[in-house]
Nucleic acid binder design. Structure first.
Lengths: 340, 340
DNA sequence: TATTAACACGAAACCGTTTTCGTAATTTCA
DNA sequence: TGAAATTACGAAAACGGTTTCGTGTTAATA
């Protein structure tokens, strides 16, 4: 007892009217008489008629789909962003197609090409590590040249003219570093990633700026640049043992957790002997023991903001509004890994 | 300098041939002469012609989109499932539309209706808490009656005839409980949720079965049923203080983490004084101190399996194969919260 | 040389809508 | 009563493809 969806054509045939009449009747057009409208509407309701989205998309050249391309989904920050996007987009009647680049340039390109041929009205994305490393943005340029709106978030680039939404990473790192300095910390270690990440670069800058502003010499030896993927706890351990810091600032959540574990294993008390602040306010920071003071990036807000910017572009295609970059303020969530 | 996508019609006009000829030439049809094909293909390449997905979807009545409806995305287990789905689906040329029901029955219904009008070829979903509580599955039945393939995973129901993929929750809880019994634990507390969750019910059964098999009396007082959402640490604390267990089995990750924190605060040593096992092998369990022994649910595999089942259905629409339920084996990941 | 086959292409239907425009039939007005 | 205006609907194009079938031209065959 398969009940396939009914079409305008079938309704028209059953009721012996034309397709146009059915279409108009269902839109309650003034053109159609009361009687005919009622008959058609009743019939349509009975058979649970719903217009076919694909046909409408073809007609309108609007899919009401947003393409979201992110490096990874098993990642707290990105999931909060996706939730924000979903949240806003759904309210506006848009669906979200999620693609994972898996931090790979090639996959990012393939994903975008798959979607760019009519499947979506616009992109929201965060650059993969591979793309940032390669510094090749032609796939983004192609998309924007075709007139497909694009909003970049978090991991962005200056080389593509489009809307962007980021948090003020410099400020976030600055505030975190100042917090540590105000506790009296002098040897603040920085756990960061290789340079090609825009966010890491900015966080490094905020760290350096704070040191400078407070007259603390910037010692390169206190900075450890780790490869992004698989974390090497041994290197963190050797590094921290060698430099003996009195505070640690980590540009992400996981380095902070590992750092804390290393110093705790050495017998140091957090935050009495050493303070720790991380970036990304995820579950780990919240549930660590002690819980870790973190710079919150407001992923959900970022997602909502990005979705809002994108949908505005999509729906005002005519107007050539200038591109904007929304800068969100980070928040330092004070927990038990720093002195209150 | 907007370079809008070129269409067959435009190519045909430029080259003064018919649309059919262009279409065939681009598919390398034998019908078209060498010369014409080369000319058309060269032109198409030059202008970077790519067929419009929407038009093809309309023609084929296939969108190459999969709809995934899950309760939440900021949740480790579901993200691993989504990754698995994405992974498999992408290889087969499918895109994934993710919708969040936010544990709400109404949102689940709305999401499905949005997608069921042609936007997708099939659904993969896990029931929202609201739906399980309400026990109303009409929206699922409507979809299957329309002939849209549906695969349910993890949170499933017997009331809908469709493909399913679950882990053997009874077995997982059984093995975990046995592990605790073998350590010599007698008073094994169970931290679980309200009864309407199918997975919790099954895990409770596995726990009870293990007790019975090993001749341990099942004491209802050792079981705490917590509301699903916002966790009440106070209740957990009162409960554990009252019953003084020598082991805790939690049906999820977070209850386990809270439970561990409570007993640690009381001065108990994990695992010397008390053992802890949780479900869902996420970041918290892995990075807790001590790390928590957990029943892994293999979310990614579950996602891949679901995607495989769905795509098989979609692509063999003619055959009325009987519905299958794939039962995945859980794995007990032994860590430091139990005695090795 | 007449017939047939092969070749190379175009016309048109189709997928399911929306929308413009044309036109019978009825009503209104002078 | 005849002309104009209104009513109520249908035909057809359009969105961007695919595919079947028909056909004019050339080449092969008898």
């Amino acid at each position: 007892m398969l009940k396939k969806k009914i079409t305008l054509k079938q309704i028209a045939r059953e009721l012996e009217v034309s397709i146009s009449t059915v279409s108009k009747a269902l839109k309650n057009s003034e053109e159609i008489s009361r009687d005919t409208k009622e008959k058609i509407q009743a019939f349509a309701k009975l058979y649970n008629y719903k217009p076919n989205n694909i046909a409408i998309s073809l007609k309108n050249k609007r899919t009401k789909n947003i393409g979201v391309v992110i490096p990874d989904i098993v990642h707290h920050f990105f999931t909060t962003v996706v939730r924000g996007i979903e949240n806003f987009a759904n309210k506006q009647g848009y669906n979200v197609i999620v693609c994972l680049s898996d931090e790979s340039f090639d996959k990012e390109v393939i994903n975008m090409e798959m979607l760019a041929n009519g499947s979506i009205d616009g992109f929201i994305m965060s650059l993969s590590a591979g793309t940032e490393k390669k510094s090749d943005f032609n796939h983004l340029l192609e998309v924007t040249e075709q007139g497909i709106p694009l909003v970049l978030f978090d991991r962005v680039t200056d080389e593509v003219a489009c809307d962007k939404v980021v948090i003020d990473d410099v400020l976030g790192a600055y505030q975190a570093t100042v917090k540590l300095i105000n506790e009296g910390r002098k040897r603040i270690a920085l756990l960061t990633t290789e340079d090609f990440f825009s966010v890491s670069r900015n966080r490094n800058r905020g760290y350096e700026k704070a040191l400078k502003d407070f007259g603390i010499r910037h010692d390169e030896n206190l900075v450890l640049k780790l490869p992004f993927m698989d974390i090497d706890e041994v290197r963190i351990s050797q590094f921290l043992n060698a430099i003996e810091p009195d505070a640690i600032l980590s540009v992400n959540e996981i380095f902070g957790v590992y750092g804390m574990r290393v110093v705790q294993r050495k017998g140091l008390k957090v935050p009495d002997d050493i303070s720790i602040i991380g970036f990304t306010d995820g579950l780990l920071a919240k549930h660590a023991n002690p819980s870790i003071t973190s710079v919150a990036q407001h992923g959900q807000l970022m997602g909502e903001t990005a979705a809002k910017m994108l949908i505005e572009r999509v729906e005002n295609e005519m107007e050539e509004a200038p591109f904007r970059t929304k800068i969100l303020e980070p928040t330092l969530i004070e927990r038990d890994s720093t002195i209150n």
